[in-house]
Amino acid sequence: MFWTNTKRVLVSGFQNFFRNGFVTLSSILIMTITLFIICSLILLGGFFNYSLNQIKEKVDINVYFVTNADESNILTVQKSLEALPEVDSITYVSRDQALNDFKDKHKGDELTLQALDELGDNPLGASLNIKAKDPSQYAGIAEFLKGNTLLSKNGTSIIDKVNYAQNKVVIDKFTNIVGSANALGITLAIIFVLISIIITLNTIRLTIFMAKDEIAVMRLVGASSKYIKGPFIVSGILCGIISAIIIILSFAVVTFWINNSYSLYFSGFNIFDYYISNFVWIFFAIFGLAIALGAVASYLAAHRYLRE
């Protein structure tokens, strides 16, 4: 009897879905809007992270060494820095490289280049360019460098200067901005998702409210609560699945179109690539949420009218 009843509930759910044209359409519409908001937030989150990473890339600190520092000592410092978990990458710029870079930078500036030639010796020291995994970790790295005890031939520290102090204000400000932007983004996303879920729950409740008399008749005929709720839940799940299909397909088309037509506004962020490379989890998240929303909303609404 279990399979017979399951089959009957499924058939009845499909019938409700197709025969309640207007009610089904309005449920699908509201669920589609909810999923649209959620999917948009996912993509915006991707874009936001991409932009933050781009900016993070530009934040670094440089360690300048004295001109008479041994390369082997500098490489020792580099190695000890690389061992730190906070450090993402380190680029070593040798004295010769620094000189070449300087010359390249001042290609048209004859006066500066002449002054450099008059000095005879290379006045530039080697340097290490350090990128941390997170902007908040630069303070720790600077502190580590302060404690470095390697000395040059004349007994002074091989580290000439660390530009953390100059960059500190900017780095701190940026760290704060990243922190609050993340918090704000997450809060806004949660609020939007909650509002849209509440609207969906209420819409489905209203559609089942329209079937209140029907529920009363089913009870009078002797239907059990499970038998009454079942078809409503099936219809709710079907509405969720259709809405999820609409959103998944339309976002594929829309992100492709946006990427081709408005890529300039995204400063290098390929929204279509992001959508495709994250497709599996977005697909399951959207479908899972849609099915859960449809089922839970229908269950709660039917349950409420059955209790009366």
Binding site: M1, T4, N5, R8, M218, V221, G222, A223, S224, Y227
Partner: peptide
Amino acid sequence: FAMEVAGRHD
């Protein structure tokens, strides 16, 4: 429907 809810066979 009345027969279905009473658990009657198809």
